[in-house]
């Protein structure tokens, strides 16, 4: 929690500024939207943080989302697969993708960047071919399944913001986050991941099966991305194979990095990743609500994230200096 203070502060600043500038920001409807979007991106952010913790990278997330996003309606609408078959099938597909990445990276010793970059291109092209590039959707069917993404649970009247409904994706995010945090911090496998992310060799010399753990990280990442793709598809209900999920890997990676994952590996906080994802969506939302021209949005998001990372780095340095001074004193004593 402590190391996420910086990003939490950034979140609070943007939140408060927007709320003051435009009161409709904190109405229930907008907050629901914001929470839903943040949750969707948070989910894929958690997935990629596992890979980043091992010191790897997964650039194919957006394309996996695109592939699952169009494979799902393709199976369900075009081939009339039942939900109970289609959903496991697409999740299995993403599992196979993750397994492929992991094996290529660990067994053939290919670079993760290269493997997943090729994945980015391959899955996108494959999805487009599969669906003939036709825009897909569920029309007005599958309302039940779509509740996973667009469902809302009424919480009644809340102070300041009125009748509030909790978006279902937020609950999914919470469950996933708790599972991920427990896995990472309370199980031996999580410890393995953190150790090998810092120093793969030392982990191997300590008897850790680093190969299996790295493969596991890529599998987790792809399966979570596939699950995210399913939710994104159910949310937007209009899936264009050529563009659906484009660049989402960058949102996910940015969220993970903002949340304290080091691209050098070995560091990561699930809570931070959730906040990181929320900041990105908060910024988009603020830009719209404050009436800032759309054309400026990338510039603003880039600048704010950079500012956040710089602040974080400065805070870390000050802390390190303090610790050094403290240690010097202890040594003298």
């Amino acid at each position: 929690m402590k190391k996420n203070l910086g990003i939490l502060g950034l979140f609070a600043v943007v939140f408060i500024v927007t709320a003051v500038a435009n009161p409709s920001f904190i109405n229930a409807y907008n907050l629901e939207n914001l929470i839903r979007r943040s949750s969707l991106y948070g989910i894929i952010g958690i997935g990629v943080s596992f890979v980043i913790i091992t010191g790897g990278i997964d650039l194919s997330i957006g394309s996996v989302i695109g592939l699952v996003g169009c494979a799902l309606p393709w199976l369900m609408i075009k081939h009339e697969f039942p939900v109970a078959a289609a959903v496991p099938l697409v999740l299995l597909l993403s599992l196979v993708i993750g397994l492929g990445h992991g094996l290529l990276i660990t067994r053939l010793k290919l670079q993760a960047f290269v493997v997943t970059l090729c994945g980015l291109l391959f899955y996108r092209g494959f999805g487009r071919w599969l669906t003939s590039d036709a825009t897909m959707g569920f029309a007005r069917d599958y309302e039940g399944l779509r509740k996973l993404a667009i469902g809302r649970i009424p919480l009644g009247e809340l102070p300041f913001i009125g009748r509030f409904n909790l978006p279902v994706p937020f609950l999914i995010l919470l469950v996933l986050a708790v599972l991920a945090a427990v896995f990472l911090n309370r199980t031996v496998y999580g410890r393995y991941l953190l150790a090998l992310g810092r120093n793969e060799q030392a982990a191997r010399f300590s008897g850790i099966n680093t190969t299996a753990m790295v493969v596991l990280a890529y599998v987790i990442c792809s399966v979570v991305a596939g699950f995210g793709g399913l939710l994104f598809a159910l949310d937007s209900n209009s899936i264009q194979p050529a563009s659906f999920g484009n660049f989402y890997e960058l949102y996910a990676i940015a969220a993970a990095v903002l949340g304290g994952c080091s691209l050098r590996g070995g560091e990561g906080s699930i809570f931070g990743v959730m906040i990181g994802a929320a900041i990105m969506q908060l910024l988009y939302n603020s830009i719209n609500l404050l009436g800032i021209p759309t054309t400026l949005e990338f510039a603003i998001i880039g600048a704010v994230i950079l500012a956040g990372v710089i602040t974080d780095e400065i805070v870390k340095r000050i802390a390190a200096k303090r610790r050094a001074v403290l240690q010097a004193r202890q040594a003298v004593v």
Binding site: R186, T187, V188, Y189, G190, R191, Y192, L194, A195, R198, N199, Q201, A202, A203, F205, S206, G207, I208, G266
Partner: peptide, 28 residues
């Protein structure tokens, strides 16, 4: 090869015995 330098004394000492000492379900 011997240490994960950025981790604590305790974590490093425990690193090789994680599996041996794990609780049911793989918990630390």
């Amino acid at each position: 090869q011997g240490l994960v330098l950025e981790m604590t004394v305790r974590t490093n000492i425990g690193l090789a015995g994680l599996k041996k000492n794990q609780k049911a379900g793989g918990f630390l």
